[in-house]
């Protein structure tokens, strides 16, 4: 494989891993929790910014060309943890306000507004995160100590992302197979009835929102470690909708579906369209990507609203005779 092809696959795999993690987080919030988080991308962004400034070092010195706040030289793993927590804290603050309306569609509108405001503020306040130009020169994790070549390092980072995907999957799996998630799904179905059964719906919504926000930030921190730069162009409010397409196509409420959906939509389709021959003007392919995604969403909502892999029906394969026979709980079974 030529160097160029290797580099291409390294990039593709890294992005795929990051997208899978992000899709799981959004699936937890929307697919299972019913929260229309139209501000999802700002939580990925805060993770990326946090990881960037915490590893770039203090502003000034060799980086005088960019201005930002909170610069530090933290070890990457620590920066990753802090970035994840930053996503959780931001989600808590945003959630306390945006989740106040009882109706989820109103919450969605508030969140969309939050995303737009965040993009404008970060772009215009140049002193905070270097405005529209964004941050560049973010150190590559472990690069100095490893001393690998560009391609070798790339494959190493693919490995890092793979480990991260497995870790996030374990957390997501524990959460989504638990009685906690059953109550979260009940809240999605009918928050009023859930409240009537004694479930504290606002508190539970906030939990889902904060966990999803932290995982989103984690994915952002991973991404910025690879690409080395981060600017408002990377997290326009529209980016959130790409992830919504992923989980709608894959299957709302199904972790496997969310992963497949993100690979199909973002890795295969979105990327594959770039190979279209230039037939009219140079940005035609780019425009077509969005047109096609729109059509896909409409087609799925019309013909296959539950996606390729619908939420699994949980059965309780259980001893009906004799109290001590069998222990299996909630054998998941596809419809």
């Amino acid at each position: 494989m030529t160097t160029a092809w290797q580099f291409y696959f390294i990039t593709l795999l890294t992005y795929s891993g990051v997208n899978i993690i992000a899709a799981w987080a959004l699936n937890l919030q929307y697919g299972l929790g019913g929260i229309l988080n139209f501000a999802f991308i700002i939580f990925q962004a805060v993770g990326a910014y946090a990881a960037a400034v915490l590893t770039l070092g203090p502003a000034g010195g060799i980086t005088t060309f960019q201005t930002y706040v909170g610069g530090a030289h933290l070890p990457w793993l620590l920066a990753l943890v802090v970035a994840t927590l930053a996503g959780g804290v931001l989600a808590l603050l945003v959630g306390l306000v945006a989740l106040r309306p009882k109706r989820t569609d109103y919450q969605g509108m508030v969140l969309l507004t939050v995303a737009i405001i965040a993009a404008v503020v970060v772009t215009d306040e140049k002193g905070w995160l270097n405005g529209a130009s964004g941050l560049v020169g973010v150190p590559k994790p472990f690069n100095e100590s490893l001393g690998l070549g560009l391609i070798e390092y790339g494959w190493f980072y693919v490995g890092v992302v793979a480990v991260a995907v497995v870790l996030v999957f374990i957390v997501i799996h524990l959460l989504t197979s638990s009685p906690w998630c059953r109550q979260v799904r009940a809240m999605r179905e009918d928050p009023v009835a859930a409240e009537a059964l004694g479930l504290n719906v606002p508190a539970r919504r906030l939990q889902v929102f904060v966990i999803g926000g932290a995982i989103a930030a984690f994915s952002g921190a991973l991404l910025v470690g690879y690409i080395g730069s981060w600017s408002p162009g990377a997290w326009g409010p529209g980016e959130t909708f790409l992830l919504f397409v992923c989980i709608v196509v894959g299957g709302l409420g199904n972790n496997f579906g969310a992963a497949v959906g993100s690979v199909l939509v973002l890795t295969v389709l979105f990327n594959g369209l770039a190979y279209l021959p230039i037939f009219s003007y140079t940005t035609a392919a780019e425009a077509l990507q969005l047109v096609l995604l729109g059509l896909i969403v409409i087609a799925f909502l019309w013909f296959k609203p539950r996606g390729l892999f619908p939420e699994r029906r949980r059965r309780f394969a259980f001893p009906s005779a004799g109290p001590d026979r069998g222990t299996a709980v909630a054998v998941e079974e596809a419809r």
Partner: peptide, 20 residues
């Protein structure tokens, strides 16, 4: 709860269910 099974509907209401 439309997209919970019948028995899941009941289990949702258990107060202080372990794991919730």
């Amino acid at each position: 709860f439309a997209r919970l099974t019948v028995i899941e509907n009941l289990l949702t209401a258990v107060p202080d269910q372990r794991g919730s």
